[in-house]
Computed example of a mutant assay.
Amino acid sequence: MKRGTFLKLKQVGFIVIAWMLIGLIIAIYDHLVLHTQVSLGTATNYSFFISVLRNMGAGLIGALLGGSLLVFYIDEKFRDKPYAYTILIVFICFVLIVGFITIVMGLTIVPYQLKKPLTDPITQQAVLSFMTDSYPLKSGLVWAFIVALTQLLLQVSSKFGHETFFHILIGKYNTPKAEKRIFMFLDINASTSIAERLGNERYHSLLKDFFADITNPILENKGSIYQYVGDEVVVAWSYKDGLEKSHCVKCFFDIKMTIERKRDKYTQLYGFVPTFKAGIHSGNVIAGEVGIVKRDITYSGDVLNTTSRILGKCGEFKEEVIISADLLSLLSSAKEYSSRLLGSIRLRGKEREIAILALLPQHVHSANI
């Protein structure tokens, strides 16, 4: 299973659990309201168990249908649309889903309560009363808010990145933590001349398409997008994920293949296919949450400066991707790549130097960028 699909299934799973819990809370709330002094009391056929079943069942069906719709369709097809526009689309779909859930609940709960088959005229009349009751309207108002909030959270999650958003929610980095991380700095070649040739709007469109197209290769190689800086993207891995199957190196060449497969698209839209270069390095960082109005998780440490300097060496040596020798020595499954020693760079403010190597697949010869 592709990692992108796996992440979306995890999102649907969270929605299923959350919506079923909300259904339980609604049932408890209704039960408490019905037993207050300002209430006329419960109906003769009221059952707390049936209420729980009804609300949690609605949450389950709604999450499986609506949650999947939000994650796999709305979030994909309308990611570039304003939030208000997506809410309108979600509302229309939601009305249809509520109607479907009401029908399903009526056809299952009413016969169970009456202990009569659906073919019985009394049962049929009770089903009709169930569907025309004000209860579905009340539930619709409540769930409309829940669906809108869920869609908002999905968009916020996309804004921060799923992993970052989850870590902010649980407060993992409220206290700074020392971690070992692998970083890849990747940017487009000749971006200044490209921007002058295309103009600001088309250049922005190019960046948007490029960053969108490289997202799946990054996710499939277990990377997370740390930040975008102009025409540059910074990708981060934990040591475990980055070293596994040489994901941190394979990611670059998977991105290259992805852009190559989209050659016709870029040629038609922009008149050329963007090329790019990358520097890859690893080391210790301090990860911590920063910001008040805008909160984010940032990494600090020499490894980031060193990776940026390695990226700068790509132009000097005319290589596509350069990796530090320290990191390459840790990649036990990197035999499919050949390397060529380029020299060493000194760490800023330190005496120690690190060796850097050009990297390319075994069957490819070094090419100028």
Results as ranks from 00 to 15, higher is better:
K2E: 12
T5N: 07
Q11P: 04
A18W: 01
W19P: 02
I25Q: 05
I25R: 01
I26G: 00
I26S: 02
H31I: 04
H31E: 11
L34K: 10
H35L: 13
F49T: 14
R54M: 14
G59C: 05
G62F: 08
A63M: 05
L64I: 15
L64V: 15
G66E: 00
G67A: 08
G67K: 00
L69Q: 03
P82R: 06
M105G: 10
I109C: 06
A126V: 11
S139G: 15
S139N: 11
Q151A: 08
S157V: 05
F160M: 10
H162Y: 11
L198F: 07
L198S: 07
R202M: 08
R202T: 10
F210R: 00
F211Q: 04
L219V: 15
L219W: 03
N221V: 03
K222A: 08
Y226I: 00
V229A: 12
G230T: 08
G230Y: 12
V233K: 04
W237Y: 06
C251R: 00
I255W: 02
R261A: 04
K262N: 15
R263M: 07
G271S: 08
P274I: 08
T275S: 13
K277E: 02
K277L: 02
G279V: 05
G283K: 10
N284Y: 09
V293G: 03
K294N: 13
Y299G: 02
V303Q: 01
S308L: 04
S308G: 15
S308F: 08
I310N: 06
L330H: 07
S333Q: 08
K335I: 08
E336D: 14
R352E: 15
I354C: 02
A358C: 04
L360K: 10
